[in-house]
C-alpha cells in the first residue's frame, strides 16, 4: 500500500470512529429518553451521511477496515430502526427507569443495548443486542436476573466476556446466539445448551451440554461439550478444546473435536465443513480485560480467523 493511501485510510478511520461514537452516544440518549420521530430522523440522516462517506472511501481503505466500517454502519442503522419503532409505538417498558440506571453504570462499559424485538414475555431473559465495537461483560445486561437464558444477537466487532469474575458466575440455563460478525465470545461452562445461528468470522470459547451451530461460516470454536457437537449448513468451522487457561474448575472434558457431527453431510466421508484447529494456530492469550477503541479492534484483528482466511 502506498504512503498516501495509508495516511488516507488512517485519517478516514479515525474520523469515521469519532463520528460513529458521536452517533452512538446520541442513540444512547434517545433510547434512555423518550425519542420523538424528529430526533430519531436527525440521527438517521447522520448515519446515512456516514454510510455515504464510507462508500466514497471505497478503494482507499484496506478491505478489512472497509468491512469493519460497513458492519459498524449496519449496526447503527439497525439501532435507528429499533428507535423508529419505539418512537412511534407506545413504549412497552419505561425508558425513565433505565435512564436512572444508566447514570449509575460505568459509562466506559455501558452498552447501547436495544432489544430488537420486545417480546411480550417477561421473566429471566438476559439479552445483549444490536451493538458494535464494544467490550461487553455481564454488567451490560438489561435484566439482571440471577438465572435464566441468555441471548446475544446482532453484534458486530465485539468482545463478549462472560467468564465468571471473582467467583461470581451467572446461572445460565441456555445461550442463544444469533447474527454475530467479527466477534470474540468468551463463555463460561454451562450445564445447558448453546444454540447458534448465523455467525461469521467469530471466535468462540464455550462449555456446554449440547452444542448446536447452524448457518455459520469461518469460526474457531474452543469447546468443551458433554455430547457430540453438531453443525448444520456451516462451513470453515475449526474446533479446539476449551483453553486450559480459561478453565474455571478443572473437570474432565470430552474429546470434543473428534466427535463433531455435520447434519449437512450425512455420509461416511469426512465433512469438508469443519476441521480440527491445528495446535500452532490456537490462541494462547485471551482478551480477558476490557479494551476499547483501536486496541479493541487490533485485538479482534489478532484473534479472528478472518485475519488469515478472507483476504478479499
Amino acid at each position: 500500500m502506498s504512503e498516501s493511501k495509508w495516511t488516507f485510510s488512517q485519517d478516514f478511520y479515525t474520523e469515521f470512529h469519532a463520528k460513529a461514537a458521536d452517533i452512538t452516544s446520541r442513540l444512547d440518549d434517545l433510547k434512555h429518553g423518550s425519542p420523538t420521530p424528529g430526533a430519531v430522523q436527525a440521527v438517521a440522516v447522520d448515519v446515512s451521511r456516514l454510510a455515504k462517506s464510507l462508500v466514497e472511501a471505497t478503494g482507499g481503505l484496506p478491505s478489512y477496515d472497509q468491512r469493519q466500517c460497513e458492519m459498524h454502519i449496519k449496526s447503527l442503522e439497525m439501532a435507528v430502526e429499533v428507535l423508529r419503532g419505539a418512537s412511534c409505538a407506545v413504549p412497552k417498558f419505561s425508558f425513565k427507569k433505565k435512564a436512572a440506571k444508566a447514570k449509575t453504570d460505568d459509562p466506559a462499559i455501558h452498552a447501547v443495548s436495544i432489544p430488537l424485538n420486545v417480546s411480550p414475555v417477561t421473566g429471566s431473559v438476559k439479552a445483549l443486542s444490536s451493538l458494535s465495537c464494544r467490550y461487553l461483560t455481564a454488567a451490560d445486561f438489561e435484566h439482571r436476573a440471577t438465572s435464566g437464558e441468555l441471548t446475544l444477537s446482532d453484534l458486530a466487532t465485539c468482545i463478549v466476556n462472560l467468564l465468571p469474575k471473582d467467583g461470581h458466575s451467572m446461572d445460565i440455563s441456555a445461550i442463544h446466539v444469533q447474527r454475530l460478525t467479527d466477534c470474540v465470545l468468551l463463555l463460561p461452562r454451562i450445564s445447558g445448551s448453546i444454540l447458534l445461528h448465523n455467525l461469521s468470522n467469530c471466535v468462540l470459547v464455550a462449555g456446554c451440554h449440547q452444542f448446536r451451530m447452524h448457518s455459520s461460516t469461518n469460526a474457531d470454536v474452543y469447546l468443551s461439550a458433554v455430547s457430540n457437537p453438531i453443525i448444520e449448513h456451516c462451513s470453515n468451522i475449526r474446533f479446539a478444546e476449551y483453553p486450559d487457561t480459561l478453565m474455571q474448575n478443572p473437570e474432565p472434558q470430552g474429546n470434543t473435536a473428534s466427535t463433531v457431527q455435520d447434519f449437512s453431510h450425512i455420509r461416511s466421508t469426512p465433512s469438508p465443513n469443519w476441521s480440527v484447529l491445528p495446535k500452532d494456530y490456537r490462541q494462547q492469550c485471551w482478551p480477558v480485560t476490557p479494551l476499547e477503541g483501536q486496541t479493541l479492534l487490533d485485538e479482534l484483528k489478532r484473534i479472528l480467523p478472518g485475519g488469515d482466511i478472507s483476504q478479499n
Partner: peptide, 10 residues
C-alpha cells in the same frame, strides 16, 4: 416444550 426457553415460546 422447553419451559426455560422464553425466547422461542412464540
Amino acid at each position: 416444550v422447553d419451559s426455560s426457553d422464553r425466547v422461542r415460546i412464540q
